[in-house]
Write a protein that binds this DNA or RNA. Structure first.
Lengths: 210, 210, 210, 210
DNA sequence: CATGAATGAGTATTCATTCAT
DNA sequence: AATGAATGAATACTCATTCAT
């Protein structure tokens, strides 16, 4: 009868995990919203943790693939690559705002699964950041900086708005799920990079010209 | 018989909420760690939510008082005031790293209590940020900027490292609860402010001289 | 695995509610007696109140159906109808003595559910009583009486012995769950009706003859 | 400060026991309503059961004393004595309607304390009923009857309206706590006794004359 | 007399999970 | 692929009671 129960389950699970947190959401809630039998969730994901793992890997596979796309053009310059990375990640998170908020939040829990994710995906993420940053510094495109502290600032600027999406809309009246926000926010980060990180604040076009 | 059950309960609750999340922590866990009877938690805080509210208000009362201290010196200049605010908040969160991580995480849940906190504390927080930023722009100390987007970036840089404390220590091998980190990170934010926000990157001493 | 858990639960619940009262009985007690898991009670009845409601409606549906049977023959005479009603209700309550005692007792509590039962079943019960009584008075079969006060006396005589079943057996050594008691008690009520209520104490047979 | 905490506690306890039942009422509820500390209840009544026992004995001491008053005039005739008994008990229960409802209800529970009450007070009550009834039958004032069944009917008529007080007011719109109801209801029982029980329905005055 | 602190045992309820069908 | 029945363990919470002050 039902076409794709699995994807409906995931979809509703993400919505609920987003608003109530993983621990605060019961399989019963999800089953009710997805209009399937509880036992069906076990059928697809073994158990609740399996559903969580599915969400994690779904998110990070795409998240890292967006980063890889940016790293792939590293030979065209670290600046361009970093700009690419920033806009890719912002657009990606903006498009998957429910999942993103939930994952960022859940990544701050000291659980077994988070440790596993860290030793795989987070290390890769760090590796990509480092690759771009170190190349940029090496080539003189970036001012010399501690790459660790740069990563902290970059990750903060990249992830936080999506964790705080409720705060943004309710308190600041900025809507982080709209394309307009992504565009504007990317511009802000670009300005920050140009004045704080890049040696010369050249725009991409100018680089091509020179 | 027991002396200060209440504060012991809070202390252990914060530790557990920090590592396991609010929903993921049972009153039984807390009672066991605090070595008190479960009913005693209800005696002091009525129910689990009451304990949560106590944590929230404890945090935000102090958090805002640190901000107020910075706003109080606004007449000595917006730059000095903002520097004051940044270092106050970083030191405060660094000192209360368990509570901070837990609060930041929990503030991203769509619950009744979070909505209440937002309509009181978050609005005040926004008000203080705006006051400093708008004064700075008005007096020509800061480059013209959308204060909303500045707040997003400031909050991102100020709060995120403490949500990501586990990531910092495990992946980046940076220890966010140590004084050394706070000192260094404050310097990084200062540099960012000077290059991106302030009209002239004068150090406080220089300002006095001129 | 188990065949008819639901009816076993109800059966044991009624026994325990009967002896200990609704509030004095825990779901654990019921689950133990019925030899099922506590969660199974929630599965069938949602919660404890759901089990109570089930008992209430089970009782009153049958109770009223016994009354309806008597009202259905009202055209054959109010006396016959009332005699029918009395014997039906006494036999019914005698057969369901546990449930009856518990329901009568619980109906004297000021709870939400009792109010709901009153606005549905008790009003119907009153309606049936009134119908017979007023017909009897109108047709001259009954002496003129305030129907309200008659209902009070009728209900008293009909219900009370089953609330006081323990008193009957322990103090008066009369066993209200035995057929013998029902037969005898019905005769007593008939005599009361004939001498106090009916205009001429004719037996049904005599009526047919005349 | 407080004058007579004890009687206030009893008073509020009776109200709550009346509406919610004994098991359904917590000492906390009582303490709150009576505006005293919970431990204070333990001080006066040892424990919850002690408070219950106090209510039981308070009720039955008075209840039996009302009966005794009627039995005391037995030499003036069984009819007069029974009439006395009926009106005494109705007025007494009417005046203590909260306590009465609660006691009648609680007497239908199979508990240790109820068994104790039965072996003392209920036996005495039965003894008084029997004394009057048997004297009346012996002297030819009453028609011959099984005294047990008479007691059942008498107790039913005497107690039930006060157990069902909520039903009376909500469904029948008869207010059992008002003097008017007591007067009227006593008259109804008198009529019942005269037509069903008494050999000649003489009024007290006539007896005196003859 | 009166109270605040504290407790152990109990409450109803909810949880994720299992399994036969 | 999907479901209804059933379960054990855990949940937050409430209970009557105790005791030092």
């Amino acid at each position: 009868m039902k076409k794709n129960s699995k994807s409906i389950i995931v979809q509703e699970a993400i919505k609920l995990f987003n608003t109530q947190g993983y621990s605060g959401t019961s399989l019963r809630d999800i089953a009710k919203k997805a209009n399937v039998n509880i036992a069906n969730i076990a059928y697809y994901f073994d158990n609740k943790q399996g559903l969580l793992e599915f969400c994690f890997t779904t998110f990070f596979e795409q998240y890292l693939s967006e980063m890889e796309e940016a790293v792939a053009v590293l030979d065209e310059g670290a600046m361009a690559s970093l700009r690419n990375l920033v806009s890719n990640l912002i657009y990606f998170q903006c498009k998957n705002i429910h999942l993103t908020r939930f994952i960022i939040r859940e990544m701050s829990i000291d659980s077994q699964i988070v440790r596993e994710i860290m030793t795989t995906y987070s290390l890769k993420e760090k590796f990509y950041f480092q690759k771009i940053l170190e190349r940029g510094i090496e080539k003189g495109e970036f001012k010399p900086h501690s790459s660790n502290y740069l990563i902290i600032q970059l990750k903060s600027l990249l992830n936080m708005p999506f964790l705080y999406s409720h705060y943004l809309s309710e308190v600041l009246h900025v809507l982080p799920h709209e394309r307009y926000f992504a565009d504007q926010y990317i511009r802000e980060i670009f300005q920050w990079m140009e004045s704080s990180l890049f040696t010369e604040a050249k725009f991409p076009e100018e680089i091509v010209v020179s």
